Simulated scan of single mutants.
Amino acid sequence: MTQPAETRLTRRFSKLKAEKRAAFVAYIMAGDPDHETAIEIACGLPESGVDVIELGLPFTDPMADGPAIQAAAMRSLAAGGTLARTLETARAVRARHPDTPIILMGYYNPIYSRGVERFLAEAGEAGVDGMIVVDLPPEEDEELCLPANAAGLHFIRLATPTTDDARLPAVLNNTSGFVYYVSITGITGAAEASAEAVAPEVARIKRATNLPVCVGFGVRTPEGARAIAAVADGVVVGSAIVSRIGAGDSPRKVLEFVRSLAAGVRGEAEHV
């Protein structure tokens, strides 16, 4: 089937491969704690060392997410967060950072409610490069994955510790951009990722695909980010950043923390 060819995302991973370093992928919830502050933080992420931005779609029932991201979704919704405003955030980032990949991460319901064709057109216009929709399994590829690929947007799938060799081909089929390996069994922020446990799983996935493998769920500190960066093509941090926002940290303080994580991914900081 047709998949996106050269994109901002593929170019970014090619550049990082040439530099022999892992990608730093940072997640924030769009609209958290409010629309304007979320845009300020999102626009500051690339300057703070972020290679790929994951922008969360606020939703009332984020079943794969732990308390930190659930609370972020509720803050966003209470402040008027919507899919349309999420795309406004993407547009603001794209206007300031033409080359930074932007991935939307969330659930299918808001997309379905808007209409797949309309959503894909608007996402492309906003400068979105791909999406992670955690509640659409491979058996439902015709719903969104295939139309997204046809529209030039990556559809990034999750692999987990329970994705065995029999299931892995289905997960990888039609996936593009990168594979997101969930380092723990459970919800986001539930436990700390172990590089020792992650390394053989990343190697197993890489034997089955040429796509980069990024590891998320359970990466909380610069030290943890550095350890995962040594065994994966990318490190995803979400709950730890969102928790800082939830605690009321200013955008400046949030971005300082993001910079410490970026230094960890790059192996530049022993202690932050």
Results as ranks from 00 to 15, higher is better:
3 Q>S: 14
6 E>I: 15
9 L>P: 01
10 T>V: 08
10 T>G: 04
12 R>K: 15
14 S>V: 11
15 K>F: 12
16 L>W: 01
18 A>T: 09
25 V>A: 01
28 I>W: 02
29 M>T: 14
29 M>A: 10
29 M>G: 11
30 A>L: 07
33 P>T: 08
39 I>F: 01
40 E>S: 10
41 I>R: 06
43 C>I: 09
48 S>F: 02
50 V>M: 04
52 V>H: 00
56 G>L: 02
57 L>T: 09
59 F>V: 06
65 D>I: 05
66 G>L: 09
69 I>E: 03
70 Q>A: 13
70 Q>L: 12
72 A>G: 13
75 R>S: 06
75 R>M: 09
77 L>P: 08
82 T>K: 00
84 A>R: 10
87 L>D: 03
89 T>F: 00
90 A>C: 07
92 A>Q: 01
94 R>I: 00
98 P>T: 04
99 D>N: 11
101 P>R: 03
101 P>D: 04
105 M>G: 06
113 S>E: 15
117 E>F: 11
118 R>S: 15
121 A>W: 14
123 A>G: 03
129 D>S: 05
130 G>A: 14
130 G>F: 00
134 V>E: 06
135 D>S: 12
138 P>T: 10
141 D>Y: 11
141 D>G: 13
142 E>L: 14
145 C>T: 13
146 L>E: 12
164 D>Q: 13
165 D>P: 13
165 D>V: 13
168 L>A: 12
168 L>M: 14
169 P>A: 09
173 N>W: 13
175 T>A: 14
178 F>Y: 11
180 Y>A: 02
181 Y>A: 05
184 I>V: 14
185 T>C: 12
185 T>Q: 15
185 T>R: 14
186 G>A: 10
188 T>A: 05
189 G>P: 02
189 G>L: 07
191 A>V: 09
193 A>I: 03
198 V>T: 07
200 P>G: 11
201 E>D: 14
205 I>S: 06
209 T>W: 04
209 T>M: 02
211 L>P: 03
216 G>T: 08
222 P>W: 04
223 E>K: 09
223 E>D: 05
224 G>R: 00
225 A>E: 01
228 I>V: 07
229 A>L: 06
236 V>Y: 06
238 G>M: 07
239 S>R: 05
243 S>L: 09
249 D>Y: 13
249 D>P: 10
251 P>K: 11
251 P>S: 09
254 V>E: 00
254 V>L: 02
258 V>T: 03
265 V>M: 03
266 R>N: 10
269 A>D: 11
269 A>F: 04
269 A>M: 10
